[in-house]
Write a protein that binds this DNA or RNA. Structure first.
Lengths: 216, 216
DNA sequence: CCACAACCGGATATTCCTGATCCGGTTGCG
DNA sequence: CGCAACCGGATCAGGAATATCCGGTTGTGG
């Protein structure tokens, strides 16, 4: 009878690492819909091996993303410590979205709480109050409109995510344009308009982006 | 041998109407992913009957939505004729989104050009230049920021759609709040901030909305 | 160095969906 | 009244995702 918590045999341990690495890559590129079979092949390993190490996909997601969400919480705290509330708020949105841009899986995880398991939900709960504070502080300093709510940041990220997914391959930083527009909308006062960080898409590119909006 | 374009037998004609009506309802409620089988059952009709009338789902979509897109084009023209460019622009966005709110299928059709067939694509192409004109006129009157582009309206609708879908059951008009924020972002000048038409969601409701974001 | 538990790979089974056809029985209509 | 047109739903085809099984291989403790 094998010892219960016996260390993996070294070939097994190596394969486990390969699987996690492959999963990291595939989730980032193609989102959470990839299969354990996909991951196995991308890792150059048999499907059986994948199922021996992880009983299902949830377990892999869990292993990979929990600490990513924790890191995001760290970013939020960092932004909360910024000297000016406005700069902190902007920086948080920028970095959060940038992160989600580079990692489709993380994006899906953040915008659909039905995915991932309890541990991921915990991390999410840890981030929520930080966002609340970011907004509160900006309101106190009078740099954002007084009716701005914490939930606004959540929903705006949801909207920007949709834009990002549609345009990511055609104009990777188009979403920044709309983030900028949103920021101009939540400022307490502005006389002119800020300079938008990305040019608008041509009609043809717009059509291309919309055509593959939901393609998988 | 039956006459080529012979009128349907009256029971057949009745069933065809029932099918179209059922399709209208289901597409509006549950989007374009519903099955011809679903539609048949909802119409109280056998699956075979459905396939006898329409060779596939595309054909039903085509029959139902082409004129909806045409009507939307009419709305755009109407807004183009408004005395003030700003009011026209706002009105167009409001009405377009309102329409999409009441009809999930139309929403999907507008935000994913890969769906629907050629005739629907035509209708879409007819709307594009009208949007261009709406934006052009607003720029000419100096009421919107000069760097606003026609494609911005498209992408913003895409983003607002995502918000709408997430919150539609919990707070049906939450999306208006974000439309308002966006409008404040594209105005040429504003001193204070407009009054938002819908209150923000509580933290609990926000979580509920995100949880069922992609649920089907 | 040897025996065996642990491990490997991938063919294969299972489940679930969607799309589409077939066919025995029924019905409107000329 | 007779039959072409129609009806309903059981049924088949195809595909995707999940999960298991098993004959062959390999690392490791004794």
């Amino acid at each position: 009878m094998p010892q219960a918590d016996r260390a993996l045999r070294k070939d097994a341990a190596l394969n486990r690492e390969r699987l996690l690495e492959a999963a990291r890559e595939l989730f980032a590129e193609r989102g959470l819909s990839v299969t354990l079979n996909d991951i196995a092949h991308h890792a150059g390993v048999g499907v059986g091996t994948a199922y021996r190490r992880f009983s299902n996909k949830e377990e892999v997601i869990d292993a990979l993303f929990e600490d990513q969400l924790v890191q995001l919480a760290a970013v939020a705290e960092e932004c909360l410590a910024a000297p000016e509330a406005w700069a902190g708020l902007v920086s948080f949105l920028e970095r959060s979205l940038e992160w989600q841009f580079g990692n489709l899986g993380l994006n899906e995880l953040m915008n659909d709480a039905s995915l991932g398991d309890e541990r991921v939900a915990d991390a999410r709960r840890r981030i929520a109050p930080l966002i609340e504070q970011l907004v509160q502080r900006a309101r106190d300093e009078g740099v954002v409109r007084p009716d701005l709510d914490q939930s606004d940041l959540i929903f705006v990220q949801l909207g920007l995510s949709a834009i990002m997914r549609a345009s990511r391959e055609i104009a990777p930083d188009l979403y920044r344009r709309y983030l900028s527009l949103f920021l101009d909308g939540i400022r307490a006062h502005r006389s002119g308009a800020s300079i938008l960080p990305a040019p608008a898409l041509s009609a043809a590119d717009t059509h291309r982006a919309m055509t593959r909006a939901r393609a998988r």
